[in-house]
Simulated scan of single mutants.
Amino acid sequence: MSGSGLSARTGRIVALYRLGTGSGQLLFAVSTLVALVMLAVLAPVIVAYRPEATAILDRLKPPSLAHPFGTDAFGRDIFSRVAYGARYSLLIGAATMGATTILGSVIGVVSGYVRGFLDLALMRIMEAFMAIPAILLAIALLAILGNNLGNLIFALSIAYIPRLARIARGLTLSICEEPYVEAARAVGASPPRIVFHYILPQLLPAILVQGSFIFAYAVIAEAGLSFLGVGVQPPAPSWGGILSDGRTYMSIAPWITIFPGLGIMLIVLSLNQLGDGLRDALDPRLRNLS
């Protein structure tokens, strides 16, 4: 069994390497994500203005050397606001992905391995959450808990945990029927050993793929919530908030909405392509190692 597991892991690594070196799509995704992360991390160094700094005499200026992305109705530099807004989008997306993958995996594995009443109860709870659109559920939770960054991440995590929990449960049910799991039980392996040595390694590829998609969903959801005024609160810049500020000036200053919109599009597109690439590399039914 250990030899088979090692061979499978080696095959996945080789497939991922071949896909990464031969796929322009995956290379674009990784390059775009790295560029956006660098923009967010280096924002204090590369921008010339504070994102909240106003200059009424420079209001609604088009893109120029002084303001590469132009200015908004308060004279704030759009480039600095987009750069600092990337921090919030990436932080919220990454934190939501981390919390969702950990908690969703735990719920799904426990439900699929233990089964019985616990499985029934957990899945009914997950279905109840899935019946509510993610944005509406997040708005309701923020209304109850209060609007801050921690509660925003918590609300989005609760909204997306059921999606991953059901996937993890279905895969766990399938893996538990495999001969090597039955053999491990027969020789007296404890449930924790079976879960950590036989189930979780098989779940990891699907968890990674779903995690990249959840990252993208969280970025879109955060932008939507900020656009509606219930996400990241001013004066902190966020891409959704910039879009909301610029919608009134679409006809005379379209750059206010164009650049944060491009940021959202690029990060979501690159995350989806990354997820597709990981799926192709890690799913034995889709990859071709010949």
Rank of each mutant, 00 (worst) to 15 (best):
G146A: 14
M130G: 11
V110I: 15
L142N: 11
G170M: 04
A165W: 01
P162C: 11
L136W: 07
S111V: 07
T101P: 03
I144E: 01
S105E: 01
G98S: 13
A121R: 14
C176K: 13
F154K: 10
R169I: 05
A165L: 11
L91E: 09
A99L: 15
G170V: 13
S111A: 15
I144N: 09
G112Y: 05
A121H: 02
L145T: 13
F117T: 12
A155K: 06
N148I: 12
V114G: 09
T100Y: 02
Y113L: 11
S111K: 10
T101R: 03
R124A: 13
I125E: 03
I139F: 08
E178D: 15
V106P: 02
G170R: 08
M130H: 08
I158N: 09
Y160N: 11
L156C: 06
S174L: 09
R115A: 10
A128T: 15
A99T: 09
R169Q: 14
I135R: 10
A143H: 01
A131N: 12
L171Y: 04
R169L: 08
G116I: 07
I158P: 02
A121L: 15
L141K: 07
L171M: 14
A99S: 07
L137I: 10
L120V: 13
G112P: 04
L149W: 03
A94V: 12
L142A: 07
V109E: 03
A140Y: 12
A121W: 02
I153C: 00
G112T: 10
I175N: 05
S105P: 08
I139T: 14
I158L: 12
N151W: 00
S157M: 08
I153Y: 00
A94Y: 03
G116W: 05
L173I: 14
A99F: 13
G150E: 07
A134F: 01
S105Y: 01
I92A: 01
I175G: 02
A134K: 07
